[in-house]
Design a protein around this nucleic acid. Sequence first.
DNA 1: AAGTGGTCTAGACCACTAC
DNA 2: TAGTGGTCTAGACCACTTA
Lengths: 250, 250
Amino acid sequence: MTSTLSQLSPSGIPLYQQVKRAVLAALASGEWVQGEAIPPEKLLAERFSVSIGTLRKAIDELEAENILVRHQGRGTFVAIHSRNQHFFRFFRVVRQDGKKAYPETELQRFRRVRANEEVRAKLALGKGAFVYEFVNLLSLNGDKVIVDTIAVPEVLFRDLTREQLRDRPSTLYSFYQEMFGINVISTSETVRATLADAEHAGWLGVAPGAPLLSVRRVAYSYNKLPIEWRISTLHTGRYEYISQDTSGGS
Amino acid sequence: MTSTLSQLSPSGIPLYQQVKRAVLAALASGEWVQGEAIPPEKLLAERFSVSIGTLRKAIDELEAENILVRHQGRGTFVAIHSRNQHFFRFFRVVRQDGKKAYPETELQRFRRVRANEEVRAKLALGKGAFVYEFVNLLSLNGDKVIVDTIAVPEVLFRDLTREQLRDRPSTLYSFYQEMFGINVISTSETVRATLADAEHAGWLGVAPGAPLLSVRRVAYSYNKLPIEWRISTLHTGRYEYISQDTSGGS
DNA sequence: AAGTGGTCTAGACCACTAC
DNA sequence: TAGTGGTCTAGACCACTTA
Protein backbone atom coordinates (compact mmCIF):
# COMPACT_ATOMS: atom_id res chain seq x y z
CA MET A 1 0.00 0.00 0.00
CA THR A 2 1.87 3.06 -1.16
CA SER A 3 -1.20 5.25 -1.64
CA THR A 4 0.31 8.67 -2.19
CA LEU A 5 -3.24 9.91 -2.64
CA SER A 6 -4.65 9.81 -6.11
CA GLN A 7 -2.52 12.87 -6.83
CA LEU A 8 -5.31 14.60 -8.70
CA SER A 9 -8.32 16.25 -7.11
CA PRO A 10 -10.59 17.27 -9.97
CA SER A 11 -13.56 16.54 -7.76
CA GLY A 12 -13.19 19.75 -5.81
CA ILE A 13 -13.23 17.80 -2.58
CA PRO A 14 -11.08 19.51 0.06
CA LEU A 15 -7.63 18.04 0.38
CA TYR A 16 -7.97 17.31 4.08
CA GLN A 17 -11.04 15.21 3.42
CA GLN A 18 -9.18 13.24 0.80
CA VAL A 19 -6.43 12.69 3.33
CA LYS A 20 -9.00 11.58 5.88
CA ARG A 21 -10.43 9.03 3.46
CA ALA A 22 -6.95 7.75 2.67
CA VAL A 23 -6.20 7.29 6.36
CA LEU A 24 -9.52 5.49 6.85
CA ALA A 25 -8.66 3.25 3.90
CA ALA A 26 -5.31 2.39 5.46
CA LEU A 27 -7.08 1.58 8.73
CA ALA A 28 -9.69 -0.58 7.03
CA SER A 29 -6.98 -2.42 5.08
CA GLY A 30 -5.34 -3.36 8.36
CA GLU A 31 -2.15 -1.48 7.59
CA TRP A 32 -2.25 -0.08 11.13
CA VAL A 33 -3.60 -2.16 13.98
CA GLN A 34 -5.64 -1.59 17.17
CA GLY A 35 -3.67 0.21 19.82
CA GLU A 36 -0.61 0.67 17.62
CA ALA A 37 0.80 4.05 16.71
CA ILE A 38 0.37 5.31 13.18
CA PRO A 39 3.31 7.10 11.52
CA PRO A 40 4.17 10.56 12.84
CA GLU A 41 2.44 13.56 11.37
CA LYS A 42 5.48 14.79 9.47
CA LEU A 43 5.85 11.46 7.68
CA LEU A 44 2.16 11.27 6.85
CA ALA A 45 2.21 14.81 5.53
CA GLU A 46 5.06 13.87 3.19
CA ARG A 47 3.40 10.62 2.16
CA PHE A 48 0.24 12.42 1.12
CA SER A 49 2.11 15.46 -0.19
CA VAL A 50 0.22 17.94 1.95
CA SER A 51 1.28 20.47 4.51
CA ILE A 52 1.33 19.48 8.13
CA GLY A 53 -1.60 21.78 8.86
CA THR A 54 -3.76 19.99 6.33
CA LEU A 55 -2.71 16.60 7.62
CA ARG A 56 -3.59 17.69 11.14
CA LYS A 57 -7.04 18.83 10.11
CA ALA A 58 -7.75 15.35 8.77
CA ILE A 59 -6.46 13.72 11.95
CA ASP A 60 -8.47 16.19 14.03
CA GLU A 61 -11.69 14.84 12.59
CA LEU A 62 -10.67 11.22 12.99
CA GLU A 63 -9.86 11.92 16.60
CA ALA A 64 -13.21 13.64 17.13
CA GLU A 65 -14.87 10.49 15.81
CA ASN A 66 -13.01 8.34 18.32
CA ILE A 67 -11.16 6.52 15.57
CA LEU A 68 -7.71 7.81 16.47
CA VAL A 69 -6.27 8.99 19.77
CA ARG A 70 -3.41 11.45 20.01
CA HIS A 71 -0.93 11.58 22.88
CA GLN A 72 1.40 14.52 22.96
CA GLY A 73 4.99 13.38 22.90
CA ARG A 74 4.08 9.73 22.23
CA GLY A 75 2.23 9.52 18.95
CA THR A 76 -1.17 8.94 17.39
CA PHE A 77 -2.84 5.60 18.03
CA VAL A 78 -5.66 3.54 16.61
CA ALA A 79 -8.41 3.85 19.21
CA ILE A 80 -9.24 0.98 21.52
CA HIS A 81 -12.82 1.06 22.75
CA SER A 82 -12.02 -0.86 25.83
CA ARG A 83 -12.54 -0.59 29.51
CA ASN A 84 -11.20 2.72 30.62
CA GLN A 85 -12.68 5.92 29.26
CA HIS A 86 -14.85 4.68 26.46
CA PHE A 87 -16.78 2.27 28.60
CA PHE A 88 -18.94 4.94 30.21
CA ARG A 89 -19.76 6.44 26.87
CA PHE A 90 -22.06 3.50 26.28
CA PHE A 91 -22.78 2.41 29.82
CA ARG A 92 -25.18 4.98 31.15
CA VAL A 93 -26.34 3.67 34.48
CA VAL A 94 -25.05 5.24 37.67
CA ARG A 95 -26.01 5.23 41.31
CA GLN A 96 -28.35 8.04 42.28
CA ASP A 97 -25.55 9.77 44.15
CA GLY A 98 -23.66 9.91 40.84
CA LYS A 99 -21.09 7.23 41.66
CA LYS A 100 -19.97 5.19 38.66
CA ALA A 101 -19.00 1.55 38.94
CA TYR A 102 -18.11 -1.23 36.56
CA PRO A 103 -20.78 -3.91 36.39
CA GLU A 104 -20.32 -7.58 37.03
CA THR A 105 -21.94 -9.77 34.41
CA GLU A 106 -23.63 -13.16 34.70
CA LEU A 107 -24.64 -14.88 31.48
CA GLN A 108 -28.16 -16.20 32.00
CA ARG A 109 -29.08 -17.58 28.60
CA PHE A 110 -27.58 -18.14 25.17
CA ARG A 111 -29.05 -19.45 21.93
CA ARG A 112 -28.96 -19.25 18.17
CA VAL A 113 -32.35 -18.43 16.67
CA ARG A 114 -33.99 -17.04 13.58
CA ALA A 115 -34.48 -13.32 14.01
CA ASN A 116 -38.08 -12.23 14.42
CA GLU A 117 -39.45 -9.32 12.49
CA GLU A 118 -38.56 -6.65 15.04
CA VAL A 119 -34.96 -7.79 15.33
CA ARG A 120 -34.61 -8.06 11.55
CA ALA A 121 -35.85 -4.51 11.19
CA LYS A 122 -33.45 -3.14 13.81
CA LEU A 123 -30.44 -5.04 12.43
CA ALA A 124 -31.33 -4.66 8.75
CA LEU A 125 -31.39 -8.43 8.21
CA GLY A 126 -33.20 -10.43 5.57
CA LYS A 127 -35.92 -12.97 6.18
CA GLY A 128 -34.66 -16.20 7.71
CA ALA A 129 -31.43 -14.67 9.03
CA PHE A 130 -30.02 -16.07 12.26
CA VAL A 131 -28.91 -14.16 15.31
CA TYR A 132 -27.20 -15.07 18.53
CA GLU A 133 -29.42 -14.03 21.40
CA PHE A 134 -28.24 -13.92 24.97
CA VAL A 135 -29.25 -12.52 28.33
CA ASN A 136 -26.88 -10.91 30.83
CA LEU A 137 -27.62 -9.96 34.41
CA LEU A 138 -25.50 -6.99 35.50
CA SER A 139 -24.72 -6.01 39.08
CA LEU A 140 -23.35 -2.76 40.41
CA ASN A 141 -21.80 -2.61 43.86
CA GLY A 142 -23.42 -5.96 44.51
CA ASP A 143 -26.92 -4.79 43.54
CA LYS A 144 -28.63 -6.58 40.67
CA VAL A 145 -29.66 -3.66 38.48
CA ILE A 146 -29.82 -4.51 34.78
CA VAL A 147 -31.04 -7.34 32.58
CA ASP A 148 -29.69 -7.10 29.03
CA THR A 149 -31.32 -9.11 26.26
CA ILE A 150 -28.96 -8.88 23.30
CA ALA A 151 -29.15 -10.01 19.68
CA VAL A 152 -26.25 -9.91 17.20
CA PRO A 153 -26.24 -11.11 13.57
CA GLU A 154 -24.72 -14.54 13.06
CA VAL A 155 -23.18 -13.36 9.82
CA LEU A 156 -20.99 -10.87 11.70
CA PHE A 157 -20.34 -13.02 14.80
CA ARG A 158 -19.58 -16.42 13.22
CA ASP A 159 -19.34 -19.28 15.68
CA LEU A 160 -19.90 -17.19 18.78
CA THR A 161 -20.23 -19.55 21.73
CA ARG A 162 -21.69 -19.43 25.20
CA GLU A 163 -18.25 -20.14 26.63
CA GLN A 164 -16.61 -17.26 24.80
CA LEU A 165 -19.21 -14.88 26.17
CA ARG A 166 -19.03 -16.24 29.68
CA ASP A 167 -15.25 -16.26 29.89
CA ARG A 168 -14.42 -13.02 28.10
CA PRO A 169 -11.87 -11.04 30.10
CA SER A 170 -13.08 -7.60 29.11
CA THR A 171 -16.17 -5.57 28.32
CA LEU A 172 -18.62 -6.83 25.77
CA TYR A 173 -17.74 -4.18 23.20
CA SER A 174 -14.02 -4.75 23.46
CA PHE A 175 -14.77 -8.46 23.12
CA TYR A 176 -16.59 -7.65 19.87
CA GLN A 177 -13.55 -5.70 18.79
CA GLU A 178 -10.91 -8.23 19.72
CA MET A 179 -12.67 -11.39 18.60
CA PHE A 180 -14.64 -10.19 15.59
CA GLY A 181 -12.98 -6.94 14.54
CA ILE A 182 -16.24 -5.09 15.09
CA ASN A 183 -16.13 -1.55 16.47
CA VAL A 184 -19.12 0.07 18.09
CA ILE A 185 -18.89 3.77 17.35
CA SER A 186 -22.40 5.05 17.97
CA THR A 187 -25.70 4.03 19.50
CA SER A 188 -29.32 5.07 19.33
CA GLU A 189 -31.56 4.48 22.34
CA THR A 190 -35.17 4.85 23.32
CA VAL A 191 -36.57 4.60 26.84
CA ARG A 192 -39.96 3.54 28.19
CA ALA A 193 -41.44 2.75 31.58
CA THR A 194 -42.71 -0.77 32.20
CA LEU A 195 -43.79 -3.05 35.00
CA ALA A 196 -41.70 -6.04 36.01
CA ASP A 197 -42.86 -9.39 34.65
CA ALA A 198 -42.22 -12.52 36.68
CA GLU A 199 -38.96 -13.41 34.95
CA HIS A 200 -37.38 -9.96 35.25
CA ALA A 201 -38.67 -9.60 38.79
CA GLY A 202 -36.82 -12.80 39.65
CA TRP A 203 -33.57 -11.70 38.06
CA LEU A 204 -33.64 -8.25 39.62
CA GLY A 205 -35.00 -9.26 43.00
CA VAL A 206 -38.05 -7.00 42.88
CA ALA A 207 -41.75 -7.65 43.18
CA PRO A 208 -43.66 -8.40 39.98
CA GLY A 209 -45.31 -5.15 38.93
CA ALA A 210 -42.48 -2.98 40.19
CA PRO A 211 -41.71 -0.04 37.87
CA LEU A 212 -38.71 -0.58 35.61
CA LEU A 213 -37.00 1.23 32.75
CA SER A 214 -36.86 -0.42 29.37
CA VAL A 215 -34.02 0.89 27.20
CA ARG A 216 -33.89 -0.25 23.58
CA ARG A 217 -30.57 0.20 21.81
CA VAL A 218 -29.22 -0.26 18.33
CA ALA A 219 -25.40 -0.14 18.21
CA TYR A 220 -23.68 0.86 14.98
CA SER A 221 -20.24 0.36 13.50
CA TYR A 222 -18.63 2.44 10.74
CA ASN A 223 -20.99 3.57 8.00
CA LYS A 224 -23.95 3.19 10.33
CA LEU A 225 -23.92 -0.57 9.99
CA PRO A 226 -26.16 -1.95 12.76
CA ILE A 227 -24.37 -4.66 14.68
CA GLU A 228 -26.29 -5.16 17.91
CA TRP A 229 -29.86 -4.89 19.20
CA ARG A 230 -30.48 -4.93 22.90
CA ILE A 231 -33.24 -4.36 25.40
CA SER A 232 -31.94 -3.31 28.80
CA THR A 233 -34.33 -3.56 31.70
CA LEU A 234 -33.28 -1.42 34.65
CA HIS A 235 -34.31 -1.30 38.25
CA THR A 236 -34.01 2.37 39.15
CA GLY A 237 -34.60 2.07 42.87
CA ARG A 238 -31.09 3.22 43.71
CA TYR A 239 -29.68 3.79 40.23
CA GLU A 240 -30.60 5.92 37.28
CA TYR A 241 -30.08 6.25 33.56
CA ILE A 242 -28.08 9.30 32.51
CA SER A 243 -28.31 11.19 29.28
CA GLN A 244 -25.83 13.98 28.87
CA ASP A 245 -25.98 16.49 26.10
CA THR A 246 -22.36 16.56 25.00
CA SER A 247 -22.53 19.38 22.51
CA GLY A 248 -22.47 22.34 24.85
CA GLY A 249 -20.14 23.40 27.59
CA SER A 250 -17.29 25.87 27.84
CA MET B 1 -16.36 46.73 26.39
CA THR B 2 -13.02 47.01 24.65
CA SER B 3 -11.60 43.74 25.95
CA THR B 4 -8.43 43.40 23.91
CA LEU B 5 -7.70 40.27 25.91
CA SER B 6 -5.76 40.74 29.09
CA GLN B 7 -2.68 41.08 26.91
CA LEU B 8 -0.60 38.84 29.14
CA SER B 9 -0.88 35.10 29.39
CA PRO B 10 1.35 34.05 32.25
CA SER B 11 -1.10 31.26 32.96
CA GLY B 12 0.17 29.11 30.14
CA ILE B 13 -3.36 28.69 28.86
CA PRO B 14 -3.39 28.39 25.06
CA LEU B 15 -4.16 31.61 23.27
CA TYR B 16 -7.10 30.21 21.33
CA GLN B 17 -8.77 29.19 24.59
CA GLN B 18 -8.31 32.66 25.96
CA VAL B 19 -9.86 33.99 22.79
CA LYS B 20 -12.74 31.57 23.19
CA ARG B 21 -13.38 32.75 26.72
CA ALA B 22 -13.25 36.36 25.59
CA VAL B 23 -15.83 35.66 22.89
CA LEU B 24 -18.03 33.87 25.40
CA ALA B 25 -17.72 36.84 27.72
CA ALA B 26 -18.80 39.19 24.94
CA LEU B 27 -21.78 36.92 24.26
CA ALA B 28 -22.73 36.72 27.92
CA SER B 29 -22.46 40.51 28.25
CA GLY B 30 -24.96 40.92 25.45
CA GLU B 31 -22.53 42.72 23.17
CA TRP B 32 -23.72 40.54 20.27
CA VAL B 33 -27.35 39.51 20.04
CA GLN B 34 -29.33 36.48 18.98
CA GLY B 35 -29.29 35.81 15.30
CA GLU B 36 -27.03 38.76 14.59
CA ALA B 37 -23.66 38.43 12.94
CA ILE B 38 -20.56 38.90 15.06
CA PRO B 39 -17.67 40.91 13.58
CA PRO B 40 -15.74 39.27 10.74
CA GLU B 41 -12.83 37.03 11.56
CA LYS B 42 -10.21 39.48 10.42
CA LEU B 43 -11.54 42.17 12.73
CA LEU B 44 -11.78 39.80 15.68
CA ALA B 45 -8.24 38.61 15.05
CA GLU B 46 -7.03 42.21 15.20
CA ARG B 47 -9.12 43.01 18.26
CA PHE B 48 -7.60 40.12 20.19
CA SER B 49 -4.17 40.55 18.62
CA VAL B 50 -3.94 37.00 17.36
CA SER B 51 -3.45 35.48 13.95
CA ILE B 52 -6.49 34.51 11.95
CA GLY B 53 -5.68 30.84 12.35
CA THR B 54 -5.78 31.13 16.12
CA LEU B 55 -9.01 33.10 16.00
CA ARG B 56 -10.53 30.44 13.77
CA LYS B 57 -9.58 27.68 16.15
CA ALA B 58 -11.50 29.44 18.92
CA ILE B 59 -14.53 29.94 16.68
CA ASP B 60 -14.33 26.31 15.55
CA GLU B 61 -14.97 25.14 19.07
CA LEU B 62 -17.79 27.59 19.67
CA GLU B 63 -19.43 26.39 16.50
CA ALA B 64 -19.02 22.76 17.54
CA GLU B 65 -20.82 23.67 20.76
CA ASN B 66 -23.76 25.17 18.87
CA ILE B 67 -23.05 28.61 20.26
CA LEU B 68 -22.11 30.17 16.94
CA VAL B 69 -23.09 29.30 13.38
CA ARG B 70 -20.89 30.12 10.42
CA HIS B 71 -22.19 30.77 6.92
CA GLN B 72 -19.61 31.01 4.19
CA GLY B 73 -19.85 34.34 2.43
CA ARG B 74 -22.32 35.77 4.95
CA GLY B 75 -20.73 35.82 8.35
CA THR B 76 -20.75 34.17 11.76
CA PHE B 77 -23.96 34.35 13.76
CA VAL B 78 -25.07 33.88 17.32
CA ALA B 79 -27.05 30.66 17.30
CA ILE B 80 -30.81 30.81 17.69
CA HIS B 81 -32.23 27.97 19.74
CA SER B 82 -35.68 28.42 18.45
CA ARG B 83 -38.39 26.33 17.01
CA ASN B 84 -36.95 24.65 13.96
CA GLN B 85 -33.89 22.44 14.26
CA HIS B 86 -32.77 23.13 17.79
CA PHE B 87 -36.09 22.39 19.39
CA PHE B 88 -35.70 18.64 19.08
CA ARG B 89 -32.24 18.78 20.53
CA PHE B 90 -33.85 19.37 23.91
CA PHE B 91 -37.29 17.88 23.34
CA ARG B 92 -36.66 14.18 23.34
CA VAL B 93 -40.09 12.61 23.31
CA VAL B 94 -41.40 11.02 20.14
CA ARG B 95 -44.20 8.67 19.22
CA GLN B 96 -43.15 5.03 19.22
CA ASP B 97 -43.31 4.95 15.44
CA GLY B 98 -40.64 7.66 15.42
CA LYS B 99 -42.92 10.52 14.40
CA LYS B 100 -41.95 13.86 15.86
CA ALA B 101 -44.54 16.49 16.72
CA TYR B 102 -44.52 19.85 18.45
CA PRO B 103 -46.27 19.77 21.80
CA GLU B 104 -49.18 21.92 22.89
CA THR B 105 -48.74 23.39 26.32
CA GLU B 106 -51.25 24.13 29.07
CA LEU B 107 -50.02 26.01 32.10
CA GLN B 108 -51.43 24.27 35.17
CA ARG B 109 -49.84 26.11 38.03
CA PHE B 110 -47.59 29.05 38.72
CA ARG B 111 -46.09 30.44 41.90
CA ARG B 112 -43.13 32.17 43.47
CA VAL B 113 -41.62 30.21 46.34
CA ARG B 114 -38.47 29.81 48.35
CA ALA B 115 -36.34 27.07 46.78
CA ASN B 116 -36.08 23.91 48.81
CA GLU B 117 -32.77 22.22 49.36
CA GLU B 118 -32.87 20.02 46.29
CA VAL B 119 -33.69 22.89 43.95
CA ARG B 120 -31.04 25.08 45.54
CA ALA B 121 -28.47 22.37 44.99
CA LYS B 122 -29.41 21.88 41.34
CA LEU B 123 -29.51 25.59 40.58
CA ALA B 124 -26.54 26.56 42.74
CA LEU B 125 -28.64 29.00 44.79
CA GLY B 126 -28.05 30.27 48.28
CA LYS B 127 -30.31 29.72 51.26
CA GLY B 128 -33.53 31.69 51.10
CA ALA B 129 -33.37 32.25 47.35
CA PHE B 130 -36.66 32.44 45.47
CA VAL B 131 -37.62 30.57 42.34
CA TYR B 132 -40.58 30.68 40.01
CA GLU B 133 -42.12 27.24 39.91
CA PHE B 134 -44.68 26.23 37.33
CA VAL B 135 -46.29 23.13 35.92
CA ASN B 136 -47.00 22.54 32.25
CA LEU B 137 -49.09 19.78 30.74
CA LEU B 138 -47.86 18.89 27.24
CA SER B 139 -49.90 17.15 24.57
CA LEU B 140 -48.67 15.49 21.40
CA ASN B 141 -51.12 14.77 18.60
CA GLY B 142 -53.88 15.36 21.11
CA ASP B 143 -52.50 12.86 23.65
CA LYS B 144 -51.60 14.16 27.09
CA VAL B 145 -48.07 12.83 27.48
CA ILE B 146 -45.85 14.98 29.68
CA VAL B 147 -46.13 16.91 32.92
CA ASP B 148 -43.24 19.33 33.41
CA THR B 149 -42.57 20.78 36.85
CA ILE B 150 -40.12 23.59 36.29
CA ALA B 151 -38.16 25.87 38.60
CA VAL B 152 -36.13 28.89 37.50
CA PRO B 153 -34.21 31.35 39.68
CA GLU B 154 -36.03 34.59 40.36
CA VAL B 155 -32.76 36.47 40.12
CA LEU B 156 -32.43 35.52 36.44
CA PHE B 157 -36.13 35.73 35.54
CA ARG B 158 -37.15 38.95 37.26
CA ASP B 159 -40.88 39.61 37.31
CA LEU B 160 -41.85 36.54 35.35
CA THR B 161 -45.65 36.30 35.37
CA ARG B 162 -48.21 33.62 34.84
CA GLU B 163 -49.61 35.60 31.91
CA GLN B 164 -46.24 35.82 30.14
CA LEU B 165 -45.83 32.09 30.39
CA ARG B 166 -49.35 31.33 29.29
CA ASP B 167 -49.35 33.69 26.34
CA ARG B 168 -45.83 33.17 25.00
CA PRO B 169 -45.92 32.72 21.23
CA SER B 170 -42.92 30.35 21.00
CA THR B 171 -41.15 27.54 22.74
CA LEU B 172 -40.17 27.90 26.36
CA TYR B 173 -36.46 28.14 25.63
CA SER B 174 -36.86 30.77 22.95
CA PHE B 175 -39.09 32.61 25.40
CA TYR B 176 -36.22 32.53 27.91
CA GLN B 177 -33.98 33.80 25.16
CA GLU B 178 -36.21 36.59 23.90
CA MET B 179 -37.57 37.88 27.20
CA PHE B 180 -34.62 37.36 29.53
CA GLY B 181 -31.61 37.00 27.24
CA ILE B 182 -30.93 33.57 28.64
CA ASN B 183 -29.62 30.86 26.30
CA VAL B 184 -29.88 27.18 27.06
CA ILE B 185 -26.85 25.54 25.51
CA SER B 186 -26.62 22.22 27.27
CA THR B 187 -28.60 19.94 29.54
CA SER B 188 -27.91 17.06 31.86
CA GLU B 189 -30.64 14.50 32.42
CA THR B 190 -31.29 11.46 34.52
CA VAL B 191 -34.14 9.02 34.07
CA ARG B 192 -35.99 6.78 36.53
CA ALA B 193 -39.12 4.66 36.46
CA THR B 194 -41.95 5.63 38.80
CA LEU B 195 -45.61 4.93 39.44
CA ALA B 196 -48.24 7.56 38.82
CA ASP B 197 -49.47 9.40 41.89
CA ALA B 198 -53.05 10.69 41.99
CA GLU B 199 -52.20 14.17 40.73
CA HIS B 200 -50.10 13.04 37.75
CA ALA B 201 -52.58 10.28 36.95
CA GLY B 202 -55.25 12.94 36.68
CA TRP B 203 -53.22 15.19 34.43
CA LEU B 204 -52.13 12.38 32.14
CA GLY B 205 -55.39 10.46 32.13
CA VAL B 206 -53.92 7.20 33.42
CA ALA B 207 -54.72 5.04 36.39
CA PRO B 208 -52.86 5.76 39.64
CA GLY B 209 -50.01 3.28 39.81
CA ALA B 210 -49.41 3.26 36.06
CA PRO B 211 -45.70 3.13 35.14
CA LEU B 212 -44.23 6.50 34.16
CA LEU B 213 -40.83 7.90 33.31
CA SER B 214 -39.36 10.57 35.52
CA VAL B 215 -36.76 12.69 33.75
CA ARG B 216 -34.81 15.18 35.85
CA ARG B 217 -33.05 17.91 33.94
CA VAL B 218 -30.70 20.75 34.73
CA ALA B 219 -30.38 23.19 31.85
CA TYR B 220 -27.24 25.30 31.56
CA SER B 221 -26.31 28.54 29.89
CA TYR B 222 -22.80 29.72 29.04
CA ASN B 223 -20.09 28.82 31.54
CA LYS B 224 -22.21 25.96 32.86
CA LEU B 225 -24.45 28.39 34.71
CA PRO B 226 -27.54 26.41 35.75
CA ILE B 227 -30.70 28.25 34.78
CA GLU B 228 -33.53 25.74 35.01
CA TRP B 229 -34.43 22.63 36.98
CA ARG B 230 -37.28 20.47 35.77
CA ILE B 231 -38.86 17.13 36.46
CA SER B 232 -40.65 15.75 33.43
CA THR B 233 -43.09 12.96 34.05
CA LEU B 234 -43.85 10.99 30.89
CA HIS B 235 -46.52 8.53 29.99
CA THR B 236 -44.77 6.15 27.61
CA GLY B 237 -47.76 4.17 26.51
CA ARG B 238 -47.51 5.37 22.93
CA TYR B 239 -44.48 7.62 23.18
CA GLU B 240 -40.87 7.19 24.19
CA TYR B 241 -37.83 9.11 25.31
CA ILE B 242 -34.93 9.13 22.84
CA SER B 243 -31.22 9.42 23.54
CA GLN B 244 -28.91 9.60 20.56
CA ASP B 245 -25.13 9.30 20.73
CA THR B 246 -23.88 11.94 18.34
CA SER B 247 -20.13 11.45 18.54
CA GLY B 248 -19.47 8.74 15.96
CA GLY B 249 -19.94 8.58 12.22
CA SER B 250 -17.72 8.76 9.17
C1' DA C 1 18.77 14.59 23.51
C1' DA C 2 15.71 13.17 20.12
C1' DG C 3 11.18 12.60 18.69
C1' DT C 4 6.39 13.27 19.19
C1' DG C 5 2.12 16.06 19.00
C1' DG C 6 0.29 21.16 20.31
C1' DT C 7 0.26 25.97 19.35
C1' DC C 8 0.80 29.98 16.52
C1' DT C 9 2.01 32.91 12.71
C1' DA C 10 1.34 35.68 8.29
C1' DG C 11 0.11 35.26 4.73
C1' DA C 12 -2.13 33.27 -0.24
C1' DC C 13 -5.85 31.80 -2.74
C1' DC C 14 -10.64 29.80 -3.30
C1' DA C 15 -15.89 29.55 -2.79
C1' DC C 16 -19.79 31.70 -1.67
C1' DT C 17 -23.03 35.70 -0.74
C1' DA C 18 -24.68 40.11 -1.18
C1' DC C 19 -25.16 44.33 -3.66
C1' DT D 1 -17.26 44.04 -6.99
C1' DA D 2 -16.49 43.79 -2.26
C1' DG D 3 -16.76 41.17 1.73
C1' DT D 4 -17.32 36.94 4.08
C1' DG D 5 -15.77 32.34 5.70
C1' DG D 6 -13.00 27.88 3.87
C1' DT D 7 -8.73 25.82 2.57
C1' DC D 8 -3.81 25.41 2.45
C1' DT D 9 0.99 26.44 3.02
C1' DA D 10 5.79 26.41 5.20
C1' DG D 11 7.54 27.15 8.54
C1' DA D 12 8.79 28.47 14.06
C1' DC D 13 8.60 27.38 18.63
C1' DC D 14 6.61 24.97 22.82
C1' DA D 15 5.24 20.88 25.85
C1' DC D 16 5.53 16.35 26.70
C1' DT D 17 7.48 11.51 26.52
C1' DT D 18 11.03 8.24 26.18
C1' DA D 19 15.56 6.73 26.48
